[in-house]
Computed example of a mutant assay.
Amino acid sequence: MSTKWITLFVALAVSGTASAQQIVKIGHVAPVSGPNAHLGKDNELAARMAIDELNAKGFTINGQKVTLQLLAEDDASDPKQGTAVAQKLVDAKVKGVIGHLNSGTSVPASKIYNDAGIPQISPATTATQYTKQRFPGAFRVVANDAKLGGTLGKYAIDNLKVKNIAVIDDRTTYGQGVAAEFLKGAKGPGVRIVGKEFTSATATDYTAILTSIRSKKPDLVFFGGMDSVGGPMLKQMKALGINARFMGGDGICTEALGRLAGDAVGDGKVICAEAGGVAGAEQEKAMADFRARFKQKTGQEVQLYAPYVYDAVMVMAAAMQAAKSAEPMKYLPELKKINYKGVTGPIQFDASGDINNGALTLYTYKGGKRTRLDVIR
């Protein structure tokens, strides 16, 4: 073989290696099947939007243009499937993971990412257990259940002036956690917990537990779970003549709840909190602009967590740029000290990986539409 051809083959081999090195894989996991699919698809669309925007701008690391590639997986809100797809992403050599949505899948998956040395930023996991594990690469961009549930409990007593409270949870890590934190905050003179019941994340008939609660005449029913259960539960409460207020965390605090509950959602009957939120003209404009861009790109309205997914991707990319490397152990220190201004507000993490001074937004529903009450930090 001539020297010319040898030189050409070497050049092609080097070129191919360089091209391979220019692709940085980022994993994303959410339930895009099952009862929470509408929320999971919302998350995945936002992750793709962020990746597409970064690539379109010519994303560079250490002066070299790279292509970010999203590897999206479905955990179906199932812990076993969640750990299976986590291992799949590890095997695919992703440089970071955005996800999961449900605490029940995110917590067990986080050990797999930790063991592999892969940073994980969750846009939705609120269970306190997630960061209490003290995994150095586990972060979240939303407030945790201690703040969310506790704030709702205090609001119920101080603002709604309720006295008799019934609590239901769906037995998931998230549902039990937020209900437990609510109970810690729902304390005051004359306040009674008149019932504690549970259902499942896939149940459709709540007649037995609601009938039991009805006889205790609660002023408020707190539900720890997701909108796919909360909506039908509200319908069955109305059918049984339970006129109590209905309260829950971010799992029920979606645009879809009004559709799922129909006229049972009432006006001002439901109070819920989203783990996040913005206030002030500048930040509200940034969020409104994001929602408009999201609708234009996807043809869909934001359901709940999309802005936090978008920011999580951007934070991870910013840490890579600051470290001049996409290697996890090199950009992890930059994640720990990140100071990023996102569409959801300022993002900095404490020593545990929790967001500093995380916001909560309180909502109610009027005319079937989610209506903001207040933003609390």
Rank of each mutant, 00 (worst) to 15 (best):
M1Y: 05
L12A: 14
G16K: 13
T17C: 15
Q22H: 07
K25R: 08
H28P: 01
V29H: 00
P31V: 06
P35G: 06
A37C: 12
G40C: 12
R48C: 00
R48H: 00
I51V: 03
I51G: 01
K57M: 05
T60Q: 10
T60F: 03
I61Q: 05
N62F: 00
K65M: 06
T67E: 13
A72M: 12
D78F: 10
G82L: 03
T83V: 15
K93M: 02
K93P: 03
S103R: 01
T105K: 01
T105M: 08
S110K: 04
I112G: 06
Q120K: 02
T125Y: 02
T126K: 04
T128D: 05
Y130V: 03
Q133S: 12
R134A: 08
F135A: 06
F135R: 12
P136N: 11
R140W: 12
V142H: 09
N144R: 10
G150F: 11
A156E: 01
N159G: 04
L160P: 00
K163S: 08
N164T: 12
N164V: 07
V167P: 09
D169N: 14
G177V: 00
G177A: 00
G177P: 04
K184E: 10
G185W: 13
K187F: 10
K187T: 11
V191A: 05
R192S: 09
K196S: 11
A201M: 09
Y206E: 15
A208V: 15
S212G: 13
K216S: 01
L220R: 07
D227K: 08
S228Y: 09
G231K: 11
L240H: 13
G241Y: 13
G249T: 00
L257G: 04
G258A: 11
R259T: 14
D263K: 13
G266I: 13
I271F: 07
A279C: 04
G280N: 05
R291L: 07
R291P: 07
A306I: 05
Y308A: 02
A312L: 01
A312F: 00
V315H: 05
A318H: 11
A319Q: 05
A322P: 05
A326R: 05
K330S: 04
Y331W: 02
P333M: 02
I338Q: 08
Y340D: 06
I355W: 04
N356I: 14
L360I: 12
L362P: 12
T364D: 10
T364I: 11
Y365E: 11
K369V: 15
L373V: 15
